[in-house]
Design a protein around this nucleic acid. Structure first.
Length: 501
RNA sequence: GGUCCGUUCGUCUAGGGGUUAGGACGCUAGGAUUUCAUCCUAGUAACAGGGGUUCGAUUCCCUUACGGACUACCA
């Protein structure tokens, strides 16, 4: 690749960043890093009506949290500032005029109401109204009135838009890095609005102008933009600019049923579709971060949704992803989002985390429940339970018996508490009382010695013992628990079980 | 309706003219830890249908079906 790689993520600040947007950002990031290029973030806020306060900050914070922050954006290496389209407003009119002058665009004075009426009328006849070469000379455009008349109407303050004058009959052979060759007939395209009556450009104009001005080498975006590709390529041609290369990413679909993944799916099935929590008048939407997902796990899972490097490898660090990434290996078909596999990835990353860090994450939860535990002690507890958790938030349920004695005993397990059990447990207490070196291995050896000597079956002791300490037949190695809660507490719990059961 | 894109186990996917169609998640069973989880081992399960091309198609072409996106002075 001779050209310097510059790619962008260009979201519209209309709300929190959707998981599909995150994936688009990720693929742009990976492609940039893989090719020693630049990844920049541009805010496409040309629709003032849909602007949502806080959305822009949210997007930046989300990318930051995920570890895929842009190299250039608002307030950071501003080589092509401004990065907000609303602040570039003054630029676009000039380019729209350029297209008018070169006869690639025209003024249209039709009101929104008039267009609605046309659409309705066509619809009633089973047709679809499409604004293009077939009717643009019958509509209220500068193509059918004189230049003077056009100028007069504009000067008089009439509302107008600027529309692209799509070539009448041409077959466009376009190339997409992921999809290969794609063909379009220009006669079937419509004359899109480039410049709105409110003085703002539409997405199409602003996007092409900025991608050119910001020296974008590759446009990597969602598949929903594929139908706009001919317009965009034509715009580059109209301006006489070299077009970037295009890659349209497959969509992320609902886990069950058909269609694009939406916010509602997350609510319904209990998984987040947003990187960070988002609060609005409509309520709170949960975020990966708040749900206890590791950013690395989210990235890893998303990267493999629609892409793989051809090997069986599944666990990748960001660096490894950068190294292995290849746009042309992106799958063409949409991918259903699988919440179960998403959780599995988190589990993998949780196991990989070191115990000290996990203890640090767990400590606040314990404190909220009124426990302050020695750091080393907590690290040990975490090491015993982390393999059975998907999230740090599950730690408490997996380890509560380390902190509080059981208040109830699992009913099913209690059935193993036989008539001879109290006597056995009493004996066990005596054995434990004798032990001075109260460590897991030592306790285990001595207790087992006692059982062999007296020919007591393992099951007869171990099950009631575990039940007494944990309250159920679950949890880590029993003697590790014994060591951690200590001799005094162990005996206390045994005595309580004898009394209760 | 029109335009474009797509279709390999339930899901994510590998493969690509001749394969026992591979892996992962999930699920099931066995082993192991006297528990649970993890772990190991095994099992389950797929080339959408129909035509071509070919000695041979899951792979190439056409077509049907199905799915998706787009079809705004939204992005």
């Amino acid at each position: 690749m001779s050209k310097q790689v510059r790619v962008r993520f260009a979201p519209s600040p209309t709300g929190p960043l959707h998981i599909g947007g995150v994936r688009t950002a990720l693929f742009n990031y990976l492609f940039a890093k893989k090719n020693s290029g630049t990844f920049y973030l541009r805010i496409e806020d040309t629709d003032q009506n849909r602007f949502v306060p806080g959305a822009e900050a949210y997007i930046m914070e989300a990318l930051e949290w995920l570890g895929i922050a842009p190299d250039e954006t608002i307030g950071k290496n501003e080589k092509f500032a401004p990065y907000r389209q609303s602040e570039r407003k003054h630029l676009y009119k000039e380019y729209a005029d350029q297209l008018i002058n070169s006869n690639w665009a025209y003024y249209a004075f039709d009101t929104a109401e008039a267009l609605d009426a046309y659409r309705k009328a066509d619809e009633e006849q089973g047709k679809t109204f499409i604004y293009n070469h077939t009717n643009r000379e019958k509509l209220d455009t500068s193509l059918v009135i004189s230049q003077d008349e056009t100028a007069r109407r504009i000067a008089a303050g009439e509302h107008y838009v600027i529309r692209f004058k799509t070539p009448v009959d041409e077959t466009l052979h376009l190339h997409d890095i992921i999809r290969g060759d794609v063909k379009f007939e220009t006669r079937l395209l419509d004359d899109k609005v480039l410049f709105k009556s409110d003085g703002m450009p539409t997405y199409h104009l602003a996007n092409i102008v900025d991608d050119h001005l910001m020296e974008t080498s590759h446009v990597i975006r969602g598949e929903e933009w594929l139908p706009s590709m001919p317009l965009h390529v034509l715009l580059y041609r109209a301006f006489g600019w070299e077009a970037p290369e295009f890659a349209h990413l497959p969509l992320i679909l609902k886990p069950i049923g058909n269609g694009k993944l939406s916010k509602r799916d997350g609510d319904k099935l209990g998984f987040p579709v947003f990187p960070l929590e988002w609060k609005s008048e409509e309520g709170i939407s949960s975020g990966y971060r708040e749900k206890g997902f590791f950013p690395e796990a989210v990235i890893n899972f998303l990267a493999l949704l629609g892409w793989n490097d051809g090997t069986d490898k599944e666990l990748y660090t960001l660096e490894e992803l950068v190294d292995a990434f290849d746009l042309s290996r992106v799958h063409k078909a949409g991918a259903k989002f699988d919440p179960e596999k998403n959780k599995w990835f988190n589990h993998q990353y949780l196991i990989k985390q070191n115990n000290e860090d996990l203890a640090k994450s767990f400590a606040p939860i314990l404190e909220s429940k009124g426990f302050t535990i020695d750091k080393n002690q907590l690290t040990k507890i975490v090491s015993l339970i982390k393999e059975r958790a998907h999230f740090v938030s599950e730690f408490w349920d997996l380890s509560d018996f380390f902190f509080v004695a059981p208040t109830a005993y699992d009913e099913k397990a209690s059935k193993n508490w036989k008539a001879e059990t109290p006597a056995l447990m009493q004996e066990l207490i005596s054995v434990l009382e004798e032990i001075t070196d109260f460590t897991s291995v030592n306790i285990e050896t001595l207790v087992k010695d006692w059982m062999t000597k007296n020919e007591i079956g393992m099951g007869k002791v171990m099950q009631p013992f575990r039940l007494s300490l944990v309250g159920a037949l679950k949890g880590p190695h029993l003697f590790d628990i014994v060591e951690l809660i200590g001799k005094e507490e162990t005996i206390k719990r045994l005595q309580k079980a004898i009394e209760t059961l």
